[in-house]
Design a protein around this nucleic acid. Sequence first.
DNA 1: AGCAAAACATGACTTTTGTCAGCCGAAAAA
DNA 2: TTTTTCGGCTGACAAAAGTCATGTTTTGCT
Lengths: 238, 238
Amino acid sequence: MAKTEFSITCNLCEYLKDSLFNGLNPEDLEHINLHKTCIHYRKGQNLFYEGTRPMGLYCINGGKVKVFKNNVQGKEYIIYIAKPGDFLGYRALLSEEFYGATAQVLEDAKICFIPRDQFFSVLNRNPTFMRKVIKAVCHEMGIMEERLAELAHKSVRERLAANLLMLKETYGMEGEGSSLIDLALSREDLASIVGTATETVIRLLSEFKSDGLISFEGKKIRVIDPKKLAKQADLIVA
Amino acid sequence: MAKTEFSITCNLCEYLKDSLFNGLNPEDLEHINLHKTCIHYRKGQNLFYEGTRPMGLYCINGGKVKVFKNNVQGKEYIIYIAKPGDFLGYRALLSEEFYGATAQVLEDAKICFIPRDQFFSVLNRNPTFMRKVIKAVCHEMGIMEERLAELAHKSVRERLAANLLMLKETYGMEGEGSSLIDLALSREDLASIVGTATETVIRLLSEFKSDGLISFEGKKIRVIDPKKLAKQADLIVA
DNA sequence: AGCAAAACATGACTTTTGTCAGCCGAAAAA
DNA sequence: TTTTTCGGCTGACAAAAGTCATGTTTTGCT
C-alpha cells in the first residue's frame, strides 16, 4: 500500500501536448519539473478531501481519478472523471478556497504533484499562460452550465443515455462500428455520475442492452448504436 | 420600446467597490469608461441570445437580469440572476465560444456594454486583474459544483427551500426578524430556478406559507423562519 | 480451493413529481 | 368599459423513480 515514486521529465511527458502546460517556455517548464513529485497510487486511494486546503496541483500521468462530492447521507455525486493529461485540484487552488470535492483513484494511477508556490510563481510571470488558464476554466464552466440544465430537465433515462455518449466521447476506444468505454465503472459510480439510484441504472442499462444499444464486456460497456442512444438522450417526442 | 442611453462615469459608479473593476488603475478604468455604452432596458428585453457570438461584456448598473438556457421543449432553466454590480457574458467571452445562455431583463435595467477589444486590452496588460478574474471564475465554478450535487440528490422540496434561502442571502432586505426577497419573480421563473414544474412550486410555496416559513407580499416573498426553512432544505431524517 | 464481501440483479411497493384540465382574479389591451 | 390574456391555484391522475427486501454472481482474499 506504500506510495511508490516514479520518475518522469515534464518536457518528455507524452501528455504535454494536450496539456495546459503545452507552450510554456522551457525555463518555466523546467522549474515545474524540478519541483514536482511523482507518485503511484492504487485504486481506492484519495488524492485530496473535500473541506481541506489545497497545497498544490495534481497532474495525471496514468490511470483514472474520480472527483466527487458527498451529500448528507453519504451519497456521492461524481463531478468528473480525470484521465491522463488532466489537471486536478486547480479550481480550489485558484479560487483560494478549500477543496469542494474529494478525489479518489478509480484505476491505479501515476500522478505528479506540483506545489502551490511553484505553480503560482510560474502563473504569475506568464500572462499568456494565465490567459490559457482563464480560457480553460471558462470552457469548463460552460460544460457545467450544460450539465446543470440537463440535470434540471431531463429524465434519468435521458441522462443515462447522454452520459454514456459523453463517456464514449472521452474514453471510447473505437472498434468496427462500435466503441468500448475504457473505464471500469461500477453501477454505483455510474449512478453517481447520472445522479440517480444504483438500481435504476441497472434496470435502464439492461433495457438498453436488450434494445441492442449497448453490450457488456467484462466490467466495461460497449456502445453499439450511438444514434439510437442519442435518440434516448434527447426527447423521443420529436 | 426604444433603448435610451444614460450617462455615468465608471470611477463614480456606486457599484465599483464591489466589482471586479475595483482596484484597476485609473488609466485603465478611464479607458473602459470612454469606450462603454450605457443603455436603459425594459422588462422582457434580451441582452444576448444563446448560440450567438459575444461582442463584449455587460455590466449591470440597475435592475435584474435572468440568464437561462432553453431545452428542446422550450422550458427554461435559470442559471443565475444578475443584480447591479454584476458582470454578464464574460464566461463565453473569455472561453471564446458562443453564448451558452440567453440573458433577459427581469426588472427594468440600466446596463453598460464594454466592447470585447477594449476589455481584452485592459485584461492583457494587467496580470493582477487577470488573477482577480481567474479567482472570481473559479469561485463561481465552485458554486456550480455545489448546485450540480444539490440538483442530483435533493428533492424538489429541499431545493426550493435551499433556493429561497439563497435568494434571501442575495436579494434579501432585512426587516424585524424577517427579510423580504426583493425580486419580482413569477412562479414560473422560480420553477425554472429550482428545476421543476410550476404547479409543484405553487403547491410547495403554499405549504411553506401555511407552515409559517414564508409569506407573500405582492409579487414578492418574505422569509419569516429561515431556520425552519433550512431544515426543509437539508435532510429531515437527521 | 473455499469463503466472505462486494457488486449485480430483480420484484414489489411507495413516494414524489409531472401532466392535464379547469377555475378564478387581476391586469392589460381593445 | 368590456374583453382577453396571463398568472396563480387546485384536483385528479399517471408516470417516473426511489426504497426495501432478497437472491445471485463475481471478486478478492487467505
